[in-house]
Amino acid sequence: MLANTLSMIVIIWFIIGLLFAFNVVSRDNQFLWQVERSIAGLLEPLLRPIRRVMPDTGAIDFSPMVLILLINAVLIVLGSL
């Protein structure tokens, strides 16, 4: 359940980031800005090692997708035990 919750948090963080990136929501929206910063603070320790290993792709950050794939891989391995 914890792994699924973490995956959902990563997806929510990604969607909020897209809303900001495409100016659907202004960064002046303090509530969403705080939510995005809080989630980023929680996820940064998990994403930082992934970003160090992955090559720089420019504006697109694939580390959240890799984190979700790693979480699912751990769930599959633990499920088979």
Rank of each mutant, 00 (worst) to 15 (best):
M1L: 07
M1E: 07
L2D: 12
L2M: 09
L2A: 12
A3Y: 09
A3E: 10
N4G: 11
T5A: 14
L6T: 00
I9R: 03
I9E: 06
V10W: 02
V10N: 04
I11G: 10
I11K: 13
I12S: 08
I12D: 02
W13F: 12
W13Q: 14
F14Y: 06
F14Q: 03
I15R: 06
G17H: 01
L18M: 13
L18G: 15
A21H: 10
A21M: 10
A21E: 14
F22I: 12
F22S: 12
F22P: 13
F22T: 14
N23V: 07
N23G: 11
N23F: 13
V25N: 05
S26T: 08
R27D: 15
R27P: 11
R27G: 13
D28V: 08
D28H: 15
N29W: 15
N29C: 15
N29V: 15
N29Y: 15
Q30A: 13
F31S: 11
W33G: 08
W33Y: 14
Q34W: 12
E36P: 04
E36T: 07
E36N: 10
R37Y: 12
R37P: 10
S38K: 14
S38E: 13
I39A: 13
I39L: 10
A40G: 14
G41I: 14
L42V: 08
E44L: 10
L47N: 09
L47C: 07
L47S: 02
R48M: 05
P49Q: 05
P49T: 00
P49N: 07
I50Y: 10
R51D: 10
R52E: 11
M54P: 07
P55N: 04
P55E: 05
D56H: 06
T57D: 09
A59I: 13
A59V: 15
I60H: 12
I60D: 08
D61K: 00
F62C: 01
F62Q: 01
F62W: 04
S63R: 09
P64I: 02
P64F: 03
M65A: 09
M65Q: 03
M65S: 05
M65I: 07
V66T: 11
L67C: 07
I68Q: 01
I68R: 00
L69P: 01
I71C: 00
I71W: 02
A73K: 03
A73T: 05
L75W: 01
L75V: 11
I76W: 08
V77L: 02
V77T: 00
V77Y: 03
L78H: 02
L78V: 00
L78Y: 00
G79M: 02
G79F: 07
G79W: 03
S80T: 03
S80W: 04
L81T: 07
L81K: 01
L81C: 04
